[in-house]
Design a protein around this nucleic acid. Sequence first.
DNA 1: CTGCGATCATTCGTACTGAAACTTTTTTTA
DNA 2: TAAAAAAAGTTTCAGTACGAATGATCGCAG
Lengths: 188, 188
Amino acid sequence: MVSGRDRPGAQALPAGAAGRNGEAVAPTAAGAGFDLMVLRSMRRIIRCVDMYSKQLEMHSHVTAPQLICLLAIVERVSISAGLLAKEVHLSPSTIVGILDRLEEKGFVARSRGIEDRRIVHVRATDRGVALANSAPSPLQQRLADGLKRLPVDEQARIAEALERVVELMEAQHIDSAPILETGPLVRP
Amino acid sequence: MVSGRDRPGAQALPAGAAGRNGEAVAPTAAGAGFDLMVLRSMRRIIRCVDMYSKQLEMHSHVTAPQLICLLAIVERVSISAGLLAKEVHLSPSTIVGILDRLEEKGFVARSRGIEDRRIVHVRATDRGVALANSAPSPLQQRLADGLKRLPVDEQARIAEALERVVELMEAQHIDSAPILETGPLVRP
DNA sequence: CTGCGATCATTCGTACTGAAACTTTTTTTA
DNA sequence: TAAAAAAAGTTTCAGTACGAATGATCGCAG
């Protein structure tokens, strides 16, 4: 059961692995186990994504999440809010806020379904379509560029590694198993 | 920092992978370029991290960002707010909020510097130290476990790929070059 | 036809996130 | 030394994100 904080030494480690390993782990920044490295990387990535989103907003008047949604909408011409949520992997309640702002700025329009009045159909306006066609990639242009400059097999490796991580993370909460029974709080 | 590895291994890539140069926008989930795949993966990762954070909060009364900060504080015994921000890669304004909540719950204490009164020193309380020692990994336990179960070279590949992405993303906004001059807004 | 449960969107509350503006304090400059 | 600049933390503001609770609507059983 892994009691909480045993983390460090455990991880067998990266012996022959690519480079960085030798030293003994300390969950710190420096030479941690792969899991900690992955965590650090992910948080920095999150931060970058967020910062880029704000720059994007300055420039294009839409944030990255908004643009992602807009692209998904344009692509499908018309889509229900709930389906959109699934499509972009956000919760319905998050979608509402994004749609509110997108609508407020005149990029999309909502309309209640006629047949089934529960569902809300979302369409992009002309302005919305125009923006979708002209806005930069919702991903860092620079990351996209940087990525493109790498050898293709390196690109593939990166994409694959990320999907692997997603797999690992999503697998878990599908079989919504015991999430945290591993580490009791405040020391027994 | 780089890390020179060079592994052939090319894996199956998306069909006409050629990258998203040609087409205007939004290739869908399916056969998108690597950059889009990367983006999709990242957003799903972000979502998982967030969801885990909420479960962590239910269980341990701290969120992932809070725990990450707490761990960084405990490790250094005492640290200034600004340094902490750098350490965990968050902006100072974000740190303030996290510290507020951590302090409110009695896990850390802030005190103005005597020598230099601009500086705020943050220390963990006994409770904070106890929590840091008993809380589960700030990373999904399950991701950590899943990761551990993979072959070591796979782990290395994943960790490295992520660092590669971080490199690409952070490199950019250091030379804070033109962020978005690539795509003009709303159609000229 | 009535009512009950399921479904869809929304609202509400909380947390995280960073930029910009501001306050206080220290350091540098004139 | 007085004024200006720089530094540290905080506040303010807008956006993202989710779960829980609501409100509306649909579908189906009785």
